[in-house]
């Protein structure tokens, strides 16, 4: 079995994996990172979205062997020193989640969206999240949350420079 090295939320793991093992199953079943859920078989729902080397991917559509040597960030690694990321805060503030099953993927996709476009308008947010399905919220509050987080994050950047 291939041996791979992956860093997940700052911790480096060396694991032997079957070639067919999906990255999301590596995370959930082998590494105990159950914060990233699975919602579909076809990469449509986006619930399993994580960042791989800084870019969003659907971890159900990546083989663990393809993630060899990569750096994975999941929802569980987003807070630093117990402080929520602005997106986590904004999703909470704007009531952008109900059952919360899509939330990890939605937040990670939003993180990627804001990396690409730090000040998106509503259309850009909606387009940027087209690969993440939510069945509870109707998306209105998710759009608001991303807008709020964008403002906070850009404010922080401005004050830092």
């Amino acid at each position: 079995m291939p041996q791979i090295t992956v860093t997940v939320d700052g911790i480096t793991h060396e694991v032997e994996v079957e070639p067919r093992l999906l990255l999301v199953h590596l995370l959930r079943d082998r590494l105990g990172k159950t914060g990233t859920p699975i919602g579909c078989d076809t990469s449509n729902c986006g619930a399993c979205t994580v960042l791989m080397d800084g870019k969003s991917v659907k971890s159900c559509s990546v083989l663990a062997v393809q993630a060899d040597q990569s750096d994975i960030l999941t929802i569980e690694g987003l807070s630093t020193d117990g402080t929520w990321h602005p997106l986590q805060k904004a999703f909470h503030e704007e009531h952008a989640l109900q059952c919360g099953y899509c939330t990890p993927g939605m937040i990670m996709a939003s993180l990627d969206l804001l990396r690409e476009n730090p000040a998106p308008d509503d259309d850009a947010i909606r387009k940027g999240l087209e690969g993440n399905l939510c069945r509870c919220t109707g998306y209105c509050n998710i759009v608001r949350a991303v807008r709020r987080a964008a403002a906070e994050m850009s404010g922080r950047e401005v004050s830092a420079t």
């Binding site: 159950t34 914060g35 569980e76 909470h92 503030e93 939330t103 937040i107």
Partner: peptide
Amino acid sequence: RRRKEDTRLVTGRTRWTDNIQ
């Protein structure tokens, strides 16, 4: 009121049935 349940849901500390091992 902002929701109490969000704390676990936005941080990935959830307990979905499939998480149980």
